[in-house]
């Protein structure tokens, strides 16, 4: 059974149809990429899956349950975590402080007035694990607002990982990054995907990232599903070439 099942989902903003009747299944353990030009509706698509706003029509099922009308926090509880195109973290807290909030929420402690010794240890251990997984141990006590773009992204991804998600949604994780940072964040995504056998869905502009990481790629254009397939199939698809990737030379260059 598919982990995520999206059936004929659309989203209108007034007259604008940002996402138009898109259907898609994501299998457990898969790394699925969504590409498409700016304004294609990728973020809108993510927003509906994660519960930021509901679709105008269509249904979304997760792990066999219809979640179309659930709130974001209810989806988190069912195993969905996401990052945003513009990194959303707690800029004035340090790295460990950011992770602590995520870890305590994930452990169900978010309403507790205080923690006992065992609970404190559980939280501390989990923070250490995530620091290690995210390669953030040395900057644990740095304020995240002062970190590099790449490290901030790593913090955001680790906060999402703290939730022990069944699926991780990443909206342009390498947006605005230089080559080295892009490479680092790709490696991090690959690592959590492989080591944790985590299902990941990612939107990305950087073709190197997409063609390196993805098991399957879905192409959105003007809100509609244009093509769907393995990286090879997408790279060779004429429709995609014409509608999105433009000149052949571009894809060759970017994917190299």
């Amino acid at each position: 059974m598919s982990l995520l099942q999206i059936d004929h989902v659309s989203r209108h903003f007034g007259k604008l149809i940002a996402v138009n009747d898109v259907s898609l299944n994501v299998e457990p353990g898969e790394l699925r990429a969504i590409i498409g030009p700016n304004g294609a509706g990728k973020t809108t698509f993510f927003n509906m899956i994660s519960g930021f706003f509901p679709p105008t029509s269509g249904t979304i099922s997760f792990d066999g349950e219809n979640i179309t009308k659930l709130t974001p926090e209810q989806r988190v509880a069912r195993g969905m975590a996401r990052t945003f195109q513009i990194t959303e973290i707690f800029p004035e807290l340090n790295v460990a402080g950011n992770l602590r909030i995520a870890v305590e929420s994930a452990a169900g402690f978010r309403m507790k007035p205080w923690l006992n010794g065992a609970e404190k240890k559980l939280v501390a251990d989990r923070i250490d694990e995530l620091l290690t997984l995210g390669n953030l141990t040395t900057s644990a006590h740095d304020e995240v607002g002062a970190l590099s773009h790449g490290d901030q992204r790593a913090v955001e991804i680790m906060m999402a990982m703290a939730l022990r998600p069944k699926i991780l949604l990443l909206d342009e994780p390498a947006a605005g990054m230089g080559d080295q940072e892009t490479y680092d964040v790709s490696r991090l995504i690959r690592r959590v995907h492989r080591e944790q056998k985590l299902t990941i869905m990612l939107v990305e502009h950087d073709m190197r990232v997409v063609f390196n990481l993805a098991d399957r790629i879905m192409v959105l254009a003007e809100g509609a599903l244009l093509a769907e397939g393995t990286p090879d199939e997408i790279a060779q698809s004429d429709v995609v070439q014409q509608a999105y990737l433009g000149k052949e030379a571009d894809l060759g260059k970017e994917a190299a």
Binding site: E104, R110, L115, L163
Partner: peptide, 26 residues
């Protein structure tokens, strides 16, 4: 006492970034 514990930290998370707090399940 509250501000020193998880509940207080959840409140500060809301103050710092409501969107992130919500998508952490708060």
């Amino acid at each position: 006492l509250l501000l020193d514990g998880p509940f207080g930290r959840s409140l500060m998370a809301i103050r710092e970034n409501e969107r992130r707090a919500r998508f952490l399940g708060i």
